[in-house]
């Protein structure tokens, strides 16, 4: 691990491996962008490390001693996002026995990171746009205007431009959020990071452990559709199952590395669809477990199931 230690930096306590040229270039950009007050939109596939980049922006900014708040916009029902973001006053609704500050207030002076911003419903998009434009807002049931100084960093793995065309996302909010747009490359596009990342995750489990040479080759050969999150889970699973300090990577049947050649499906969507089918087959069509195996959220899994029309019958056949 020591030969890769120079590539590990911690942002808000989150170690981040930066070895490949694309990641090094991205971090150089992050340092420059962090000095400004611009809103930043981070694009990248699920599990590629968008939150690490957002944390790095806060870490390198003048706001680093102020609060960092992150919110995953897909984890709450739409009707609860509003009270979480904007807070509420005592008596605002039945049972509101005390005033509660929203996350925007809690982030005052610092940075708020809105993950999966594409999931934000249109009404919240309007309210967020006003805040981004520096306008004060009201807590739910409030009469006093609240003004906050917050830098917004947002992230998505979705194509917001397509969302704008279909009316699911506001173009004005998109342009306001993407004053600076950064893209995190998928892991398969920065293969120099695979082994340093794998060795870092392994060292977190067992400082003495090392991979077999065949494992290293298997790790390099796989395309990692679930990106860094999938790699982390694979390494940790292998480390747990290892009977000695020599770790043989346990790729699940659906993750078997495919050699380059005519049989290898090169179409990204085909690879992703097959990975989903394999995960569902392995988990008996249990969506939560399949999502965990793939390193994605259940919501993302549901969206991809719909996209790829992966029905239960297909899963059974695939299994």
């Amino acid at each position: 691990m020591s030969n890769h230690a120079a590539g590990v930096q911690a942002f808000l306590g989150r170690p981040t491996v930066i070895c490949s040229p694309p990641m090094q270039r991205l971090m150089q950009t992050v340092v420059r962008v962090a000095q400004s007050s611009a809103s930043v939109l981070i694009l990248g596939e699920t599990g590629s490390g968008k939150e690490h980049i957002a944390r790095a922006i806060h870490h390198h900014s003048r706001r680093c001693a102020k609060p960092w708040v992150d919110l995953n916009c897909s984890t709450l029902p739409e009707h609860l996002i509003e009270s979480e973001l904007f807070g509420y006053e005592k008596g605002a609704f039945s049972g509101a026995t005390a005033t509660k500050s929203g996350l925007l207030e809690l982030a005052d002076g610092g940075t708020i990171f809105l993950d999966e911003i594409g999931e934000l419903d249109p009404r919240m998009q309007v309210k967020l746009l006003r805040v981004l434009d520096g306008m004060p807002y009201y807590r739910l049931g409030g009469v006093r205007k609240i003004a906050v100084d917050v830098r917004v960093v947002a992230a998505t793995n979705q194509n917001l431009v397509e969302f704008i065309k279909t009316g699911k996302f506001r173009s004005d909010l998109y342009h306001r959020l993407s004053q600076v747009s950064l893209e995190v490359q998928p892991l398969r596009s920065r293969r120099e990071d695979i082994l340093p990342l794998a060795e870092f995750f392994l060292s977190e489990c067992n400082q003495e452990a090392r991979f077999t040479e065949s494992s290293k080759q298997a790790l390099l050969n796989w395309n990692w559709p679930g990106n860094v999150r999938e790699l982390r889970n694979t390494v940790l699973r292998s480390a747990i199952l290892a009977e000695s300090n020599v770790v043989d990577v346990q790729l699940s049947p659906g993750e078997a590395p495919r050699a380059s050649g005519a049989e290898r499906p090169l179409h990204l969507e085909s690879l992703e669809r097959q990975a989903i089918l394999d995960a569902l087959a392995q988990t008996g069509n249990h969506h939560q477990q399949a999502a965990d195996l793939l390193g994605i959220s259940t919501r993302t899994l549901a969206r991809k199931l719909k996209l790829y029309k992966c029905e239960a019958d297909h899963v059974s056949l695939a299994g």
Partner: peptide
């Protein structure tokens, strides 16, 4: 539960769960 948000300051961390 699911982690909905985190608030990190130099002094403490708070996390909201659903």
């Amino acid at each position: 539960a699911r982690v909905v948000w985190n608030r990190v300051t130099p002094e403490t961390v708070e996390t909201g769960f659903y």
